[in-house]
Simulated scan of single mutants.
Amino acid sequence: MQGLKPYAGLLVVSLEQAVAAPLASCHFAQGGARVIKIEREGEGDFARKYDSAVKGTASYFAWANHGKESLCLDIKRPEDAALLERLLARADIFLQNLAPGAIDRAGFGSEALRRKYPRLITCDISGYGESGAFAEMKAYDFLVQCESGLVAVNGAPGHPGRIGVSVCDIGASMNAIIGLQKALIARGITGQGSAVKLSLFDTAADWMTVPLMHTVYAGKAPQPVGLHHPSIAPYGGFTTADGQVLAISIQNEREWVKLCADVFERPEIAVDPRFCNAAARVKNRPDTDMMVAAYFAKRTRAEMEARLRAASIAYGAVNSVADFASHPALRRAPVTLEDGQEADLVAPPVRHSFEPEIPQLGRVPKVGEHSTAIRAEFA
């Protein structure tokens, strides 16, 4: 079974840009599908110019576009629109994340396409859905983080903060993959394609379920608390004697008793009325944190790690990205860039027994690199 490509034989046509749709279609390319990425003539997907960090290639683009073929089209031209029709007549999946209404105005709306091609699965990724007052709003990742309240529960006290990666784009991509896999299974049962629709806002809203429930039913929204947790203590980063920061997370009373007895060697703290249960520790968080911080400040990181590990207390280092780059648990996989150079991406997080431990990622295509060949093939 080694080397199995479960999506082999599938044709995915993706009219895509930025991150959400490209990352989803890249998953199918990695699984053996043929993915034809449709780009604007000239500059192509604007994500190609986000940065030049990876030996001249944009980091986002290298991450989300390896293993695809690039076809430049202007679907406002009749001959290019006709070529797209021929592609879709043979496609299994059509994925798009253009501005709301753009794909319908171009004559390639998902409902009309599935009437013409009953086995076709369509996937539309939008910012805020396809109807309502926000449908026409631009939906960059940061703005969706703001609108959904994600920034309101992140950051430091009094200073809400953007999450440092494009989580709404990435989450929407993952939801698209889940939706498309369900649609493929459904087609295997019924023989009919179906529509997959999702938005960045719905993705963020799903993640905000717990803060929303606290607000609606308990009358109080969680506030940004930095490395701390609004309802757990001790929980956060504490500085050691040699200037390192270790994070601990005490999830239950058993762990709290072990921390006091086996790490602090002060079992009496566990029954102190100020700290004897989770609610008391949160109520007295300044005192709780001051006590923990004082203990950490007298010992080096190595000493604290040894004590925490011996007591089976959950901990982790608060690493910089540079620290993360040399982390022993970090898995990497090589990718070939547009100009033939190689770089290392983070290896895909899901591992299968039928794939090699270090997967072979496809090459990142140049703008329109496959246009001539595809036009000839689908003439």
Results as ranks from 00 to 15, higher is better:
residue 106 A to H: 12
residue 111 E to L: 04
residue 60 Y to P: 14
residue 57 T to K: 04
residue 62 A to F: 08
residue 92 D to R: 06
residue 98 L to V: 14
residue 72 C to D: 11
residue 86 R to C: 03
residue 116 K to D: 12
residue 57 T to A: 12
residue 57 T to S: 12
residue 88 L to C: 06
residue 57 T to D: 14
residue 113 L to P: 14
residue 104 D to A: 15
residue 96 Q to C: 02
residue 119 R to N: 06
residue 59 S to E: 07
residue 106 A to L: 15
residue 117 Y to V: 01
residue 92 D to P: 10
residue 58 A to C: 15
residue 83 L to M: 08
residue 54 V to Y: 02
residue 94 F to N: 00
residue 101 G to M: 10
residue 59 S to P: 13
residue 89 A to Y: 07
residue 91 A to T: 09
residue 115 R to H: 08
residue 60 Y to C: 04
residue 70 S to G: 08
residue 117 Y to C: 10
residue 74 D to H: 11
residue 109 G to L: 05
residue 105 R to P: 07
residue 112 A to C: 05
residue 84 L to V: 00
residue 97 N to S: 02
residue 75 I to E: 05
residue 120 L to F: 01
residue 97 N to I: 01
residue 77 R to P: 15
residue 81 A to D: 09
residue 81 A to Y: 09
residue 95 L to K: 00
residue 87 L to P: 04
residue 105 R to V: 00
residue 101 G to P: 00
residue 80 D to C: 09
residue 69 E to Q: 14
residue 102 A to S: 14
residue 64 A to K: 01
residue 99 A to M: 13
residue 90 R to L: 09
residue 99 A to Q: 10
residue 57 T to C: 14
residue 89 A to I: 05
residue 89 A to N: 10
residue 79 E to S: 10
residue 61 F to A: 00
residue 114 R to G: 09
residue 108 F to R: 08
residue 57 T to F: 04
residue 113 L to S: 01
residue 111 E to Q: 14
residue 98 L to E: 11
residue 114 R to C: 09
residue 106 A to F: 15
residue 89 A to R: 12
residue 54 V to H: 03
residue 53 A to E: 10
residue 83 L to S: 01
residue 96 Q to F: 07
residue 64 A to M: 10
residue 92 D to W: 11
residue 83 L to A: 03
residue 85 E to N: 13
residue 69 E to V: 05
residue 88 L to E: 09
residue 68 K to I: 02
residue 114 R to E: 06
residue 116 K to S: 13
residue 104 D to E: 15
residue 108 F to C: 00
residue 55 K to V: 03
residue 89 A to T: 04
residue 118 P to T: 12
residue 86 R to P: 09
residue 110 S to H: 14
residue 111 E to I: 03
residue 74 D to L: 10
residue 80 D to L: 11
